[in-house]
């Protein structure tokens, strides 16, 4: 059931700087650039790198050091995303945005990039870390994070939900639909699929 043959399921590739780009910004959902996120022979020094330390004590970095090789550390993901919005708003054509991390992180970064005017051709993503899913209940619009099972209960409306491979880039979430809509109460055993 893990491959439902759905075309909207994103595919990911190890990141290499786009030779057509003029400046390369890599945002990472963690303290370091994971080796497996980069294509063979590519080093983090090819990018300006933004990382997330997930702690309050982060080294001060010159905010204007905006070039390949520079590393800027953020306390938490929202801290990084807020800086990313400000940065993209004053960026010029030629920038490429890359992200490495969990799927919700990648697609939140995609949404920020898209709202700033970047097209899919100007962004690239590598999925590293957990397979846990952010899901969207199509019935009540509740978003749930970290879902690892094929079936789960909606935190918003209590419906037993089947987690589909159908992925919305706009919502950065997998679609989840009520599984017992035809025969109320008939809910198969949940399987642990996405950890």
């Amino acid at each position: 059931m893990s491959d439902q043959g759905i075309k909207s399921r994103p595919r990911y590739h190890p990141i290499a700087p786009d030779p057509q780009g003029r400046h390369h910004l890599l945002v990472v959902d963690g303290p370091d650039v994971p080796v497996e996120a980069l294509a063979e022979g590519v080093t983090p020094s090819a990018f300006e790198v933004w990382t997330v330390a997930r702690k309050s004590a982060v080294p001060a970095s010159p905010a204007m050091d905006e070039q390949a090789g520079a590393v800027r550390v953020f306390r938490a993901v929202p801290h990084l995303f807020s800086a990313l919005e400000e940065r993209l708003a004053r960026e010029t054509m030629g920038l490429r945005l890359y992200a490495a991390g969990t799927e919700p992180f990648l697609w939140d970064a995609y949404g920020i990039g898209a709202r700033a005017g970047l097209s899919p051709q100007e962004m690239a993503f590598a999925h590293v870390g957990t397979q846990a899913r952010r899901i969207f209940c199509v019935h009540c619009r509740t978003v749930m994070e970290g879902v690892t099972t094929s079936i789960t209960t909606c935190a918003g409306c209590g419906a037993p939900l089947f987690v589909r491979d159908h992925f919305s880039r706009r919502l950065a979430a997998f679609m989840a639909v009520q599984i017992d809509a035809e025969v109320p109460g008939e809910v198969p055993q949940a399987e642990e699929l996405y950890s």
Partner: peptide
């Protein structure tokens, strides 16, 4: 001209 255009141009 081309190098100072904002993203999304």
């Amino acid at each position: 001209l081309l190098s100072r255009q904002p993203l999304g141009t």
